[in-house]
Design a protein around this nucleic acid. Structure first.
Lengths: 200, 200, 200, 200
DNA sequence: AATGAATGAGCATTCATTCAT
DNA sequence: GATGAATGAATGCTCATTCAT
């Protein structure tokens, strides 16, 4: 009857996720929300984990689309590209809290069953950051010791900003946009190729 | 019989949390661990949330103790102090994974009932960072535009590092200690009072 | 497409039964195994019980084939025939554990719907035993008071041996083959027309 | 409220067992039958298996009481004792079909969790048979090659009779009592030390 | 201060079956 | 003949919580 129940399940799950959180999400709840029996969900997803994994996949793809778009805008300016990637990343997290929660906040235990092959696919996003970082290092416009480490460091700063914002933990007196911009700049400034290291 | 059952409950819960994780923690399990009936817990805590809130309070206090200790070591060097604060913060998170989770990652929904007054108390920890940042700014050793924002930015970077590490999301080929140090340095380098802004 | 899907269903179900056991057998599983939809099974069998009843019929037929083969080997020696029938019976039970279970151990409740007419057909197997017993009695080589009773008695001894073995209840220190042979001999010796032992 | 809910659960379970069979027995069904919530059952039994195991224990004990009583009646006549043991065994099975089903008809898979220590206790019943068989062999009134095997053989004959009767598989034209007596005699006659018939 | 007894709601998952096509 | 979509009922079990004592 429903043209695409699978789609409906995925979308509904995403919304429930952001409203009630992962912990309180149950198959029954999803079923109730979509107006189908719980059994019907199993027609489209092998089990709860499979459903979440599908959501993760989608999220990773969407994020990838968003980030890739950036890449083309600044093909020759690694710094500008990195900056734009950061903005996009944070924007994605704030605009898609549902996706973001399953994608990056799920407990490792649940991720164990996530197929390794998909992990690789998920890592493509990080690779876009890595490419920009490496390019900046190669051109000497960014001071990069270890590109791998540097990439993760940038990512973790962005992730911290997104999660604190989503959890509403950031001081309410701080303007959200200002905070985001400050966080990104701050992180990028860490790459400044300096005459003098300051922190010994 | 027990001089302070409330104390015992809190300690036991904390240990169970660190050892077995949040998801598997139940009132029954706590009761079994302390050797009292589950009902007894309700004599000291209104419900599970109240128990967790008490735990969060304690966690914030413990973190505060840990951070305050640092303060005295470098009373006159804001940069060293900030650096040490960061290290301590990350160490605390990694040493008390599930504790950290309860403190900072609990779904907002659960936090709604958390009294605003306690939120303020929890913010004392951030104040220690803020003080160091402000001191550095005042002395001109750190380039700080808005101390409030800067503090939150540093915190969010640390939080990102902790959560990614706890979720085992950081590339396994990266040495954990190296990653932490890089993340902290990177964040502090963002404060370098520079002749030249790089990101326009 | 399939020339005889009914046939395929029965065979597959039997195999699944022998391999995975009764408890784990479901219509879905059968459907998957035959490569048809679950719905298709209902085109050939009214419901699960009907399928099982058909299976019981077949089992009875198969057992009948096995036992009849014996009959011809010893047409003139009732004792040898009876002995061989017993061996065959036990062998059949042990070789088709779960099949045997469905045939003889299904709860009466499930059997209520089993048509009385089929019961009669099932009884043909017992008749083979009865014939041997009667023949032995007629020839005076077996001491038989009431052939009907005697037949059931022999059968119940065999059934007891099979079921205890299938349930792994027989002392593990006893060799299975030795136990079977002892059980059969013991039962046959009950027919000894004294003072002459017949089975050496 | 209920003086002994554990008792009530055990008794109710037994009755449901004989009425509906093991396969269809569920914790909820038991709960409904006793007028308590399903959860309450878990206050007295760790899980479904534990409940069944308790039932097995009780059954074994009751059977043991019944068989032990026999022992004293014929202390010096192994044959009479064995005969009486057999009668009692069959009588117990027919009078306590509920117990009998859990005790001897449960699937091996469910028995795996049955503590080994209890298995030993359960074997006491077989030991009573073994003692009589051995005594008869020692006195030369029973022809016993291997007492262990002989005991199991007798038991399996009795078990076969009980289960066929319980499953209503025995020809309805046969008088139940006559069948039982014939089965027992037949089995004992297998022990006849020829050339003298012992059981008249 | 402490508890044993009890429960309703919930969980993921499986099942046999139905029905419109 | 065959099926995909759908479901209601059921399963064992866990949980936070309550209440009378």
């Amino acid at each position: 009857m429903e043209p695409d129940l699978r789609r409906l399940i995925l979308d509904t799950t995403r919304h429930l996720l952001v409203e009630d959180g992962y912990a309180s999400l149950s198959m029954r709840k999803i079923a109730r929300a979509i107006g189908y029996s719980a059994t019907s969900i199993y027609l489209h997803f092998e089990n709860k984990d499979a459903l979440f994994h599908a959501l993760i996949d989608e999220g990773m793809d969407r994020l990838h689309q968003a980030l890739k778009a950036v890449e083309k805008v600044h093909p020759d300016d690694p710094i500008a590209r990195l900056h734009a990637l950061c903005r996009r990343y944070v924007a994605f997290g704030l605009e898609n809290p549902e996706y973001y929660e399953v994608m990056f906040m799920l407990h490792p235990q649940h991720m164990e069953r996530y197929p390794a092959e998909k992990y690789r696919r998920a890592r493509r996003n990080l690779d876009l950051f890595a490419a920009a970082v490496a390019a900046g290092g190669a051109r000497g416009v960014l001071a990069v010791e270890d590109a791998r480490v540097a990439t993760s460091v940038v990512w973790s700063a962005l992730h911290g900003a997104v999660t604190l914002l989503l959890a509403r933990r950031v001081d309410v007196r701080i303007d959200e946009a200002a905070f985001i911009e400050a966080a990104i700049r701050h992180s990028l400034r860490g790459f400044v190729p300096l005459p003098e290291p300051v922190i010994s």
